[in-house]
């Protein structure tokens, strides 16, 4: 298992105290009369991969959208890298967002731009001091890291689903984020491509030293990437623990995720 000492420290049995990069306290958010997250609290530690599992509609995506303030919570606090996200003004929020990478479920590549332009777009705005040559080198290097070096001048519509996800991941990591938020990174992909994306998530963590929250209901992705896991149910933490604890849990809901489906 990955980062054994980290998990041990989370259980409170070790003297190590890894730094918290995200700290969420009593987060509440709802749409109309429908509560989505109820008093949700969680911490993400440095260089940790936290997998959040849950059925559709359990509030997983809403949670990471609150972290980057794409959605405003009804109450509760979200501290990211020591900053209270909900109290930041627009300029400080933009500065904080520069340190966060967000991989959208749909990839969200700008479809009027080539892959190179897609990567250039955040780079030009976040790494303003880079020369064009340095930028080109960085783009080529990042695309090579995700195995897409030959797609530089292609349009997103010319790529397959898996390639689009990789290109989107490349756009996210090209600006060297400290935190990565993955919204269902393997949804809609075949098992082989899903495995490739899962191993890319691990490669990104190793190479860029990122801390990540991975929202998924793909158990294979969770197995491949998780240092720690949280199961969300009806907007609350249903279970928190290591992959091993989840797999050994006798709980029916947990097992419904882990046991192979009967045909």
């Amino acid at each position: 298992m990955k980062s054994e000492n980290k998990i041990a420290s989370l259980a409170g049995s070790a003297t190590l105290s890894p730094e918290q990069v995200i700290e969420i306290h009593n987060l509440k958010i709802g749409f109309g009369d429908l509560p989505v997250l109820k008093d949700f609290s969680v911490q993400l530690f440095e260089k940790e991969n936290l997998v959040i599992l849950g059925k559709s509609g359990s509030g997983k995506s809403v949670l990471i959208k609150c972290i980057v303030r794409l959605l405003n919570p009804d109450s509760g606090t979200i501290n990211v890298l020591g900053e209270n996200v909900n109290k930041l003004n627009d300029r400080d929020l933009a500065k904080l967002r520069m340190k966060i990478g967000f991989l959208f479920q749909s990839g969200a590549l700008y479809d009027s731009m080539t892959i190179k332009e897609n990567l250039e777009f955040p780079l030009k705005r976040i790494k303003k001091n880079l020369s064009q040559k340095e930028m080109d080198e960085k783009i080529e290097d990042t695309l090579e890291n995700v195995g897409l070096s030959d797609t530089l001048h292609k349009m997103p519509s010319e790529l397959s689903g898996g390639m689009r996800k990789r290109a989107s991941l490349a756009r996210t990591i090209v600006v060297d984020p400290m935190i990565m938020l993955y919204d269902e990174p393997t949804t809609g992909l075949d098992p082989v491509t899903s495995d490739e994306i899962s191993s890319l998530i691990n490669d990104v963590q190793k190479k860029y030293d990122t801390s990540s929250i991975i929202i998924t209901h793909d158990i294979e992705c969770a197995r491949a990437t998780a240092d720690r896991m949280i199961m969300l149910k009806d907007g609350e933490v249903y279970l928190e623990g290591s992959l091993d604890e989840f797999e050994k849990s006798p709980d029916e809901l947990i097992q419904s995720f882990f046991k192979p489906k009967k045909m």
Partner: peptide
């Protein structure tokens, strides 16, 4: 269409207004 495919959100997250 950009809104539906989360491209506007992606722009916002990458610190672009």
């Amino acid at each position: 269409s950009m809104k539906v495919t989360e491209q506007i959100d992606a722009m916002e997250v990458s610190s672009t207004n």
